[in-house]
């Protein structure tokens, strides 16, 4: 892993929650404006990469939440069940519509689908970091100590 950087670690602690909020914001506004599940998922994926850079692959591998299969599996399941719900309720696979929440807020039903996409994309980034992160770590072990470090 790269040299331990105090600046990166401290900075990531402030940045990570902020980035996560932005990703959720992008996810929520996605139906009518720029954003959506995919771009939101990528932003959340950037948080994963930031965590990897600042705390090393142990942080990712040891996490109970950041695991490839559950994230991708759940995401796909949510997206699929949304499609099937459209088939059951509206007679067409993936059919959409607007849902009015109790507060008078109108939300597109496809937000459910977007949440699924969001989870899949985060899962894919986690999968990449976990696989490639391992390789970098094991290579590092065989390298000799640097004189100027």
């Amino acid at each position: 892993m790269m040299p331990d950087s105090l600046i990166l670690r401290t900075g990531s602690r402030a940045l990570a929650p902020l980035m996560l909020l932005v990703s959720l914001y992008l996810l929520l506004r996605g139906h009518d404006a720029v954003g959506g599940g995919f771009i939101g998922g990528l932003t959340a994926g950037a948080v994963v990469v930031l965590l990897y850079f600042s705390r090393g692959s142990k942080r990712i591998v040891g996490s109970r939440v950041l695991r490839f299969t559950p994230l991708v599996g759940t995401g796909l399941l949510i997206a699929l069940l949304y499609g099937l719900a459209g088939l059951l309720l509206d007679g067409a696979f993936l059919a959409g519509g607007k849902v009015t929440l109790p507060g008078g807020l109108e939300v597109a039903a496809s937000l459910v689908f977007d949440v699924g996409v969001y989870l899949v994309v985060v899962g894919l980034v986690v999968g990449i970091v976990r696989h490639m992160g391992y390789a970098a770590e094991s290579q590092e072990v065989t390298l000799p100590e640097r004189e100027d470090a």
């Binding site: 299969t69 559950p70 991708v72 599996g73 759940t74 796909l76 399941l77 699929l80 499609g83 099937l84 088939l87 696979f93």
Partner: peptide, 18 residues
């Protein structure tokens, strides 16, 4: 649409039931 969603649903459940 069943030939699309049925195997995909199977794949997802198989993934979660790993």
């Amino acid at each position: 649409t069943a030939p699309f969603w049925l195997p995909l649903l199977g794949a997802v459940v198989a993934l979660l039931a790993r």
